[in-house]
């Protein structure tokens, strides 16, 4: 199988990097993807991670990255859009590039993805999370791109480039790099349509469209993998950090409280070591 690595890690915060370091320590090949800054780097001061009294979150995160880099771990920029179990392996779609692995570890942290009215009902019927995946179906049609991540403008430019009529909606001023694209300042509150998307509601106005691309920097874990079991808002795991889907692990804030650095680091280790052990058992 081409591009097959042992473990793909989604997210490069403390849990993800800890998983990467420990997988490598067990002789496993790893790819790690990230598309956003994590919460640790925003913490003003951290006092409860053993060995690092009075340090800023950013300093600590930089140290974690240095550690990973020293072990030749390269954090790849990219948003994981979906993950498909294939029996003995997984196919992972990173913004259109397909990678394959034997195990997957999810360490995306907590996400404040708030679902819009009409979103899940119309998903696949005009609601899309990935411009490069569905864009071609809307050539010559009207679509709205909702800016909720730093690279949404790139996807809007891509859509316009293939011949889609794009309206870019953002609560921030128009991004510098946005092509000559119709810009509307606002926030989408509702997606309207019975069988397919007909319009989006911005509170004070409606924009008619055939599709809406919701380009958030996080995708709800249950949209990533079909059938993933949750416990409240978090991913359900056992003491080995295994989810209900064989070969898929979760670690860090995404598995629940306490939302603390030390817990994330140790869960990353547990997940990676267990995954490595399972791979060894199978290949022995």
């Amino acid at each position: 199988m081409e591009n097959l690595v042992d473990i793909i890690i989604v997210g490069a915060g403390p849990a993800g990097l800890s998983a990467a370091v420990n997988a490598l320590a067990r002789g496993k090949t790893v790819r790690i993807f990230s598309n956003r800054e994590n919460y640790l780097s925003k913490a003003e001061r951290v006092d409860n991670h053993l060995g690092f009294y009075n340090i800023s979150g950013k300093e600590l995160m930089d140290k974690f990255k240095e550690h990973a880099e020293a072990m030749n771990i390269k954090i790849e920029e990219g948003k994981v859009v979906n993950i498909l179990p294939m029996g003995n392996s997984f196919m992972v779609n990173i913004n259109g590039e397909i990678a394959q692995s034997k195990k997957v570890i999810l360490t995306m942290g907590i996400s404040n993805v708030k679902e819009l009215s009409g979103e899940s009902k119309l998903l696949g019927s005009g609601v899309s999370y990935c411009a490069t995946c569905d864009g071609m179906l809307y050539r010559g049609k009207d679509v709205v791109v909702w800016d909720q991540s730093n690279d949404a403008w790139e996807e809007a430019n891509f859509l316009q480039g293939i011949g889609v009529n794009v309206t870019f909606v953002s609560k921030k001023p128009a991004p510098e790099n946005l092509n000559n694209i119709n810009f509307v300042k606002g926030t989408i509150t509702e997606i309207i349509g019975s069988n397919s998307v007909e319009a989006v509601n911005l509170g004070n106005e409606e924009i008619n469209c055939n599709a809406v691309f919701l380009l958030r920097d996080a995708i709800a874990p249950t949209s990533l993998i079909e059938g993933l079991k949750l416990n409240g808002n978090f991913i359900d795991v056992n003491k080995n950090m295994e989810t209900n889907i064989e070969g898929v692990y979760a670690a860090g804030d995404i598995t629940g409280r306490p939302l603390q650095l030390s817990k994330a680091v140790s869960e990353g280790l547990i997940a990676a070591q267990h995954a490595a052990l399972q791979i060894d058992k199978k290949e022995r």
Binding site: N82, L84, G96, E97, C133, M136
Partner: peptide, 14 residues
């Protein structure tokens, strides 16, 4: 499906 669609390539072996 379509040739440019990455998710389609994922589903093809299934």
């Amino acid at each position: 499906w379509a040739a440019w669609c990455a998710p389609c390539r994922m589903v093809a072996p299934v």
